[in-house]
Computed example of a mutant assay.
Amino acid sequence: MPIFAATTLGSLSAHSFLSLLASTDASHSLSSSFVLTHKSPSKRPSNFAARVSLSGKPEPIAGVLESSPSSPESVRRARRSADWKTAREYLDSGFIFKGRIEGSNAGGLLVRFYSLVGFLPFPLLSPAHSCKEPYKSIQDIAKSLIGSLIPVKVIQADEKNKNLIFSEKEAAWSKFSEQVGVGDVYEARVGSVEDYGAFVHLRFSDGFYHLTGLVHISEVSWDLVQDVRDILSEGDEVRVKVLDVDRDKSRITLSIKQLEEDPLLETLDKVIPQDDSAEPDSFGPKSDSEIIPLPGLDTIFEELLQEEGIEDVHINRQGFEKRVVSQDLQLWLSNAPPVEKKFTLLARAGRQVQEIQLTTSLDQEGIKRALQRVLERVP
């Protein structure tokens, strides 16, 4: 059997593909089945290709197809042409096809589609296989799948260039994505780790990992993360929270850090505990006249005082952390309850944290809106 080139998603040699199709006998055409959303295929005589139209009705083929390698070449061409048409219908409709794995090469799997054979690249396999057998190479997993039926979607059907490409990931998305909602929490396993974040496989109630989402580097930890690989490695078991589901682009955005308490949403005492572990001079003077505001705070204070309902704003005290979360200025409204109309803000840049006291008649939501307006005005 000819081996397809697999350097790119659709790099199937036209010569190799045609040679393969020419060597395919009719018994192969009975070796695949598929799943339609609404109707099942009708029974067909054994000397017909088991193919139906997307309406669920048997689709006639030009002439009677004899299941013999000696069938006229014109009949075999008619069969292949009809099967390419069916492939394009699957591509347009998004219906799921259940194809038999007939072989593999260095880049993916060979999938039977009636009289045709298409290609399923390894990156488009569902993560269920690698997560089930994490210590196997992708080549060993591919060998174990030969002869099995797997659900796939047609993502390319180019008869002219003889490119028929499948994706198991897209089929899994159609089946499982509706179960995923914003705010859901999943047990997950880390797949590939990139400079910008980590791709994480979600485990569903059946115990398998069907879908993959991205944890951006900014959602890995509350600490400043310079390299995701310092925190996460392939195969790590993690818990993630769903931040967004983009159904048009088949993307899931995840967070690890939002399942942990944000250290900045408390008081300075929470951020820098006053115990024996604290540095001797962690807390600076309590007179705001002796504290130099972090760069940019003076302008923010001036703008805050222009907001209706805000009576006074000043730095209460400051401290120095052992870790750096961000060199940029960050401003947070503490969860600490107000005392006599006084709310607490925390400003952080580098290792320095300043506690700001805000006297106002506004409630917490009103302060958030005022802060948002101010930050939009401040360059």
Rank of each mutant, 00 (worst) to 15 (best):
M1W: 04
T7V: 02
T8P: 00
S16L: 03
L18H: 05
L21A: 15
T24P: 00
A26C: 07
S27K: 09
S32A: 12
F34S: 14
P41W: 13
R44Q: 02
A49H: 02
S53A: 10
L54I: 15
L54Y: 06
P58M: 05
E59W: 04
A78C: 01
R80E: 15
R88M: 13
G94V: 04
F95Q: 14
F97C: 02
F97L: 14
S115P: 03
E133P: 01
E133I: 03
I138S: 04
I138E: 05
Q139T: 01
D140A: 15
K143S: 11
K143D: 09
L149E: 06
I150M: 10
I155Y: 07
K160M: 06
N163F: 00
A171C: 09
V180W: 14
F199I: 06
V200A: 04
L202D: 03
Y209P: 10
H210K: 13
H216M: 06
S218K: 07
E219H: 13
S221C: 10
I231M: 11
R239L: 07
R239H: 03
D244A: 12
I252W: 10
K257F: 04
Q258C: 08
E260F: 13
D262V: 05
L264Q: 09
E266L: 11
F283E: 00
P285F: 13
I291C: 08
P295L: 12
D298C: 04
E303T: 08
N316K: 13
D328F: 01
V339E: 07
L345F: 03
L346G: 06
Q357D: 00
L362K: 05
A370N: 01
L375H: 05
R377N: 11
R377S: 09
